Amino acid sequence: MAHESGKKGEELVYWDGREQAIVANWVDVEDHQFEPPAAKLIFKMVIKPNNCLAPDQGVVAEAEAKLGNVLDVYETQLAKFMSLATDKYTIADLLHLPNLQSLMGTPAKKLIESRPRGRAWCYEILARPAWAKVLEMKHTAQV
């Protein structure tokens, strides 16, 4: 854990047990609520078409409805904090990046953009310099 492995003098985030539990809860939400419908949409809207296969629109609609419900919860949470778990960027936000990056290139983008706080959160975390570096490294590796 970062709070145990930092070097003396480095600024690290120190959380009490309650704050750690809140972050862990949002990590679970990402894993069990956000990721399944997001992954289904990415498969149906990106991977299948890239392999010349048509997506099943019924499955897409169902996954969009599930993801929309999750994003409604996020919208409420983001009215309280700048990020999902707290006013600081945490692993709970970081875990969303790959799926958000992919979803923003699909028609499912409308699910995020129709929620003002979710849209702002999404664009803010996608614009983080560390994520830009990840995308640059990915592009370099594919060339």
Rank of each mutant, 00 (worst) to 15 (best):
S102H: 14
C52T: 15
P98E: 00
A54R: 13
E75P: 02
L71H: 09
V60I: 06
A63L: 08
D93Q: 02
V73N: 09
P107I: 04
L94E: 00
V73C: 11
Y89I: 14
A85I: 08
D93A: 09
D56T: 08
G58I: 10
M104V: 05
V73E: 06
N99W: 07
I91M: 13
L100V: 06
S83R: 15
T86H: 15
T76C: 10
L94T: 10
A108W: 03
E62M: 13
Q57C: 12
D93L: 09
T76W: 11
G105P: 01
N50V: 14
Q101K: 12
A61I: 11
T106M: 00
L53V: 13
Y74N: 01
I91A: 10
E75G: 01
V59A: 10
C52H: 15
F81V: 07
N99G: 06
H96T: 04
L95C: 08
D87H: 11
M104S: 01
M104K: 02
M104H: 03
A108S: 04
V59R: 11
E62H: 14
Q101N: 11
A63D: 02
Q77R: 04
Y89W: 10
A63S: 07
G58C: 08
L53I: 12
T76K: 12
D93Y: 06
V59E: 10
T90E: 00
M104C: 04
Q57T: 13
V70E: 06
N99P: 05
A92D: 02
L95Y: 09
G58F: 09
N51A: 12
C52P: 10
V73H: 09
V59N: 09
K88H: 14
D72V: 08
D56E: 10
E64Y: 07
V73Q: 08
L100D: 01
G58E: 10
L71W: 07
A79I: 06
P49N: 02
D72Q: 03
E64C: 11
K66N: 06
E75T: 00
V59P: 09
T106H: 02
D93W: 07
V73W: 12
G105A: 03
D72K: 01
N69P: 07
P98T: 00
P107A: 08
N69K: 12
Q101C: 12
A65K: 13
T86N: 15
G58P: 07
L67K: 05
D87K: 13
D93H: 09
V60T: 03
L103H: 02
L67F: 08
P98R: 03
L95V: 07
P107L: 05
L53H: 10
S102K: 11
Y74T: 03
E62D: 13
Y74K: 02
D56V: 10
E75V: 05
G68V: 03
N50Q: 15
N50D: 12
S102F: 14
D93P: 09
N51K: 08
N99V: 01
A79Q: 09
N99M: 10
H96P: 04
S102D: 08
G68M: 06
N50E: 13
L84D: 00
S83Q: 10
G68F: 06
L53E: 15
S102W: 10
N51T: 08
L94A: 13
Y74H: 03
K66E: 07
A85Y: 03
A61C: 14
L95T: 06
V60F: 04
L78S: 01
L78Y: 01
A108M: 01
L94I: 12
K88M: 14
G68D: 05
S83V: 14
S83H: 14
